[in-house]
Design a protein around this nucleic acid. Sequence first.
DNA 1: GGCCAGTGAGTAACCAGTTTCTAACAGAGC
DNA 2: GCTCTGTTAGAAACTGGTTACTCACTGGCC
Lengths: 359, 359
Amino acid sequence: MRAGTGERAEDQQEPASQPGSAGRRGPRPAGAATISRVAEAAGVSRATVSRVMNGSTTVRPELAARVRAAAQALDYEPSVAARSLALGRTGTISLVVPDLANPLFQGVLRGLSQAAGKAGRQLLVAESNEDAEEEAILAIEARRNSDGLVLASPRAPDERLRELSDRLAPFVLVYRDVPGLAAPSLSVDNVAGITDLVSHLTGLGHHHLAYLSGPEASSSHALRLAALRAAAAGTPGFTLTELPCGSMFDDGHAAAGAVLECGASAVVAFNDMVASGALTGLHELGVRVPGDVSVTGFDDIPFARYTTPPLTTVSIPKNELGRQAWDRLWALMNGESGGYNVRFQPRLLIRDSTGPAPS
Amino acid sequence: MRAGTGERAEDQQEPASQPGSAGRRGPRPAGAATISRVAEAAGVSRATVSRVMNGSTTVRPELAARVRAAAQALDYEPSVAARSLALGRTGTISLVVPDLANPLFQGVLRGLSQAAGKAGRQLLVAESNEDAEEEAILAIEARRNSDGLVLASPRAPDERLRELSDRLAPFVLVYRDVPGLAAPSLSVDNVAGITDLVSHLTGLGHHHLAYLSGPEASSSHALRLAALRAAAAGTPGFTLTELPCGSMFDDGHAAAGAVLECGASAVVAFNDMVASGALTGLHELGVRVPGDVSVTGFDDIPFARYTTPPLTTVSIPKNELGRQAWDRLWALMNGESGGYNVRFQPRLLIRDSTGPAPS
DNA sequence: GGCCAGTGAGTAACCAGTTTCTAACAGAGC
DNA sequence: GCTCTGTTAGAAACTGGTTACTCACTGGCC
């Protein structure tokens, strides 16, 4: 993406060092109005200004108007930091994900961002770069800066999450279900998804499946693989070939040759990106999909409808996960129970990348 | 995405109302250690604890060790809110974008998140849902909760941004260049991108181009359209057909019929998503790409390499924009000049969706 | 007219840190 | 031995809000 991209400076502008920022005395805001200045201007106490700003009804309307006028005249905006300190909450929640480039987490981010925004809450985002310990550290750090946390942590060991649970609370776990964890989790039924996929493929006459593996440490990968192995073990005359792969387009693209070699008639890819890469790779090798080989994905990313051919996949409600994460977190922050754990049932979407096994 | 997705409650867990949260006296943290408690435990003053926590060297090593031990024993973590108040800064910066589903902004988000993370800063994210006035309001709100702002605001009028400039500073504008704005901007040379695209296509013998328009209010769309019109006006025997479209996959998909009707031999789509949708739509109509019609995109989203055929497009350094936005903002926050405005030169990527005009 | 309840607004005590100013003390120099 | 200087750590002021408590004043009721 960056390689070779030229860059050119132009449009020189005046230095633009912020006018009032040269630290009069206190720290940053310099000339910013404080509640005291507003109180003085309106001839009332700070308490009254505070009451007016927070919509308390115990202030005489006429006085309230005077305060509002003073605030307006001074461009007064309450200090968020001072408010947080006094109130003991920040008005912010945070989201920690392993990878912002992954549509799976982008979906949660969107859903959460919109739900939190509607409730007037700010959203802090941190990316752990797929590193298990980083996930934990960032989660703690993000949590300290907010009132609650939504954590997508596919790498960190169950035990680590359990021991962190106190410092992270209130928090909600997504795309994962850790037994014995004192936090609600919103997960996806990977087993059901894989089972649906396998029935669909065996129904089409496929007996030899290749699985393009996800990242070793991924908990979703582990569940999907286990479900596939179980299905294979439970069906006589069924062969499962496991091919190491990854989670990105390129991984799937690079695996196309191995797919061809192993002789499978259908490919179950770890996710849609891998499937989509494999589709392109197979196309380049002259393999027809679904004529020669069927291909399936997982997740139903927005792009899955626009691959050639459109991808048969398993749809999971990414935005909905984000929205519900907000609901749960909100409940938790109010001291209520976060409710039950929820496992979303994915939905099989049959498109054109799967067809009858070649005879 | 959500339609029909089943949901099932299971794994009932204990109520999990946070153990210590029932408000002992102060607000939230309940039993959390404060600097006073640590000071008391270590037998020193709060000032000394503060100095130790901030790595001041003016504390006797032996004393410092005692303080650290006490802090450790009490699980002490400084209050972010109190620190923000005293210091006058939050350690957070914010990003406001119109649409988190758009790969363009996802790229900036990633680049910014990583750069800010490396510097130990938190990142606040807000999404304006493509609404011009919402952009402004969210920007103010986000800015109040942080020390600086990166703003992607393709909708808000120039004038509105100029009048807001004081309240938003320090801030950096991305994907846009507003004349006279006292803030550095990082933009992309849309004109150069379109010019490259047009030369490429005319070089292949295309004389009739269809432009699949972006959203009316988008400043990128305006610039790209203007560049196309200029190119058309400057080239004899050149026809430009403008087709209303949009910015998403579906818009491009829906426009395929119109493309066919208008008789153009090449399609310049507003962006890669539109191009990709158009590709699928044309394929469904039995049109060969690039045999019958050539198609180009803009942005080079990760997916563009995996369409069928791979998409000829213009690459813009999305992550790099995020990284540089951080650098500029950092400079600004330190009272330095934010430097020159930068206009990135996009790079033409010729893939397989363009070919010679049919004769 | 006096008592009581209710209302509106001020006082002051918080929230949890940072930092300036000051003082105690130790060691060096004369 | 005394003064001067440098180091270390504490006292207290400060960041900008919120809120429990208190009190003055008003009106209703007897």
